[in-house]
Design a protein around this nucleic acid. Sequence first.
DNA 1: ACCAATGGGACTAATTTAGTCCCGTGTAGT
DNA 2: ACTACACGGGACTAAATTAGTCCCATTGGT
Lengths: 351, 351
Amino acid sequence: MNSIEDVSIWSAVRRLVPELSDELQKRIRILERILALQPIGRRALAVEMGTTERVLRAELDFLRVQGLLTASSAGVSLTEDGEAVLDRVAEFAVRMDGRKELAERVSRVLGIPQVVVVEDDSDQNSWVKDNLGYRAAELLRSLLQPDEVVGITGGTTMAAIARRMPARAVSYPVKVVPARGGLGEKVEFQANTIASTLAEKLGGESMMLHVPDRLNEETMEQLLNDPYVQQRLPEIRKATLVVHGIGEAVKMAKRRQVPDEEVAWLENQQAVAEAFGYYFNQQGDVVYSMPTIGLRLDDLQNARVVMAVAGGSSKARAVAAAAKAYRIDVLITDEGAARLIVQSQDYYQDK
Amino acid sequence: MNSIEDVSIWSAVRRLVPELSDELQKRIRILERILALQPIGRRALAVEMGTTERVLRAELDFLRVQGLLTASSAGVSLTEDGEAVLDRVAEFAVRMDGRKELAERVSRVLGIPQVVVVEDDSDQNSWVKDNLGYRAAELLRSLLQPDEVVGITGGTTMAAIARRMPARAVSYPVKVVPARGGLGEKVEFQANTIASTLAEKLGGESMMLHVPDRLNEETMEQLLNDPYVQQRLPEIRKATLVVHGIGEAVKMAKRRQVPDEEVAWLENQQAVAEAFGYYFNQQGDVVYSMPTIGLRLDDLQNARVVMAVAGGSSKARAVAAAAKAYRIDVLITDEGAARLIVQSQDYYQDK
DNA sequence: ACCAATGGGACTAATTTAGTCCCGTGTAGT
DNA sequence: ACTACACGGGACTAAATTAGTCCCATTGGT
């Protein structure tokens, strides 16, 4: 039995001391490189690892004091102890590298420039979603630009992002808007609510858009002429940083209480993915779009960054379809989804 | 199945990022206190935890940003998330507190002012000895005074101390001497070797004492008059910081290749412990002392600090006996030994 | 015998962290 | 209802730590 498998305690630890795993990975990487290249000099290693000499030196000093490596005039080498310790944490290293490589493969397969893969599978462990939220929040914050308009959709994953966003460490002068109107879900998973809490966490402002979930053509027309909507809608469509979730078509349709015959129709159309209220088939074609007020697929062209966050092996197909349907710049997913995405690609390649 | 049980990976992690695991424990302690006292003010909590307001404030800010606690005008309280996280790492906390309480009980039972208990049992897992060495080295370093003479014995535990002593982070102007002559063991576990490497790590100087292990009365007399010995022996007996291991009497005797009849005699005398070449029974009486050149039991009176390091459930009896036999100021042991020590005390109290 | 790369020392600039004091506010006790 | 106290949080400064830069004696490989 392996402690790494029981990751739930790790996620708590990471919550309490987030810099721990980064620092740990950093030092493991250093030890690994030394093992491979020993004996190697400080400067050469610094170049090799893409860090500065001075910082690396501090790390090496530490590791030497810990008795994990020795320094001779030929360079630094691991001690027996160092190798033993490295051996014990090798699983980390493997998983680290594994996820990194996985991310690169997903990036190639889906044509998404930046992909982050977090550990485990959202479908298996609920805390994975939390982790997904953490990494998404982290990345989102790093991408923010002053006076930017951030558009965000609803769902449990988006809620996790808002929840895990650090609360007002510094104030960001941004505006957060819901990408679409209410989706008739629980209030804490609605885009409006999420936009609001996210804005609060960021120290920015938010805007609400209260419109019903499902509309018919007629009320749609009316609403579009409504001054409330006419004032707010352009603001939403101006969003330059769009964060959204991707869902399974049928599952989403049912959650939104779409009539059974329409669900059957969607199935018939082989719809597999849903995002922004649009339904896509495996080829990325739009097979149906819900009549709602909000961001349209075309608006994504004007966005600076389109960020997708979705995990769980069950969503692999949906993510792949969405990636074909529209431009995604950043994808944050988990091992469960990522593995299936690269697998199916291998499958097609084999044929 | 429980990840904490598989502690070996944690010991490696602690080796790689010691400062962060300390940080982890610190934050766990803070969360625990808040849970117990909430809502509580920053200043009151600082007093409660024996830290300064400013440092605690930084921690609280962090934990708040992480969404683990909220601050109202009544004070800070845990959020649901905070309680959940605390719950996940509760095992840590329990083990932490458990060991601390255990240490206090051992301290009372044995009458040793300062007791440190490290996790697990040296008899079960070999890495525990390493941990023992780490804590001992840490403590030893903090106790050092300039120009002090440090006496150290042999054995695997002492070797672990020397190995885990940080290598010359700063230079200590100390002199390290072997407490007794060679003990006929493997060279890396001999007092001479250990004293030498320890001195090097500390940036101090060392002194060797090369005399045979087992002596008869005659050669003993001769050696005591030998100029080599006459020069070195007083230096050894002047040691003011004495670090030593405690062994099981019979096991030690056999390792030193004492003749079988003498071993039987020791058993007959109910010798259970060995330290500095002296054998003690359960009551702490000296039943036999090996004729070797070196530190004598009386010399401990003049020592500033006497530090004992011994772990493993099999050594519990020996440690208890040694504690009765002579003054020990600091004891570093493990859970395996500590549990048995307090248990046997309970046993006697019940009678 | 030389040369290039090594670890480690030394000094300074930049950044982070800790100490101290204060203020407006909400709350508990009277 | 009122007052006094403890609350969080802001602000500023001093201290400590960390990173950048340059140098040098030494050594191992060619």
